[in-house]
């Protein structure tokens, strides 16, 4: 396995500690929060555009419903300093 240099100290930490036995039951825990569902169902998934689609839900409405504005996300990121940038970061 190739490990990025900055991650190596984690790997070495594993060998220092007792080798952890994986629990084979990796099935999804039953109490997956509503948050996890909403975060995907409302925000992700295929979106198609075209005449045949009469409407596509606007995800921001739910956040507005919760009295949360997008700006609060930005504020939070400012508060905790510059967020780390990854090449995989989604272009918004």
């Amino acid at each position: 396995m190739i490990v990025p240099a900055h991650g190596r100290h984690i790997i070495s930490a594993v060998f220092q500690e007792k080798r952890y036995k994986m629990n084979n039951a990796v099935a999804k825990s039953k109490d997956v929060t509503l948050l996890e569902i909403l975060d995907r169902v409302l925000d992700k998934g295929v979106v198609i555009a075209g005449d045949m689609v009469i409407s596509v839900a606007d995800v921001d409405l739910i956040y507005l419903g919760l009295k949360v504005l997008l700006s609060s996300v930005e504020t939070m990121e400012k508060l905790r300093g510059s967020p780390f940038i990854s090449p995989m970061q989604e272009a918004k």
Partner: peptide, 21 residues
């Protein structure tokens, strides 16, 4: 993120959700 990305076919970082959410 980087360590798990190594074990994945593809990976994405999504926007953070505020505490109110």
């Amino acid at each position: 993120f980087e360590l798990l990305k190594e074990l994945s076919f593809e990976a994405h970082i999504n926007r953070l959700l505020p505490r109110e959410v």
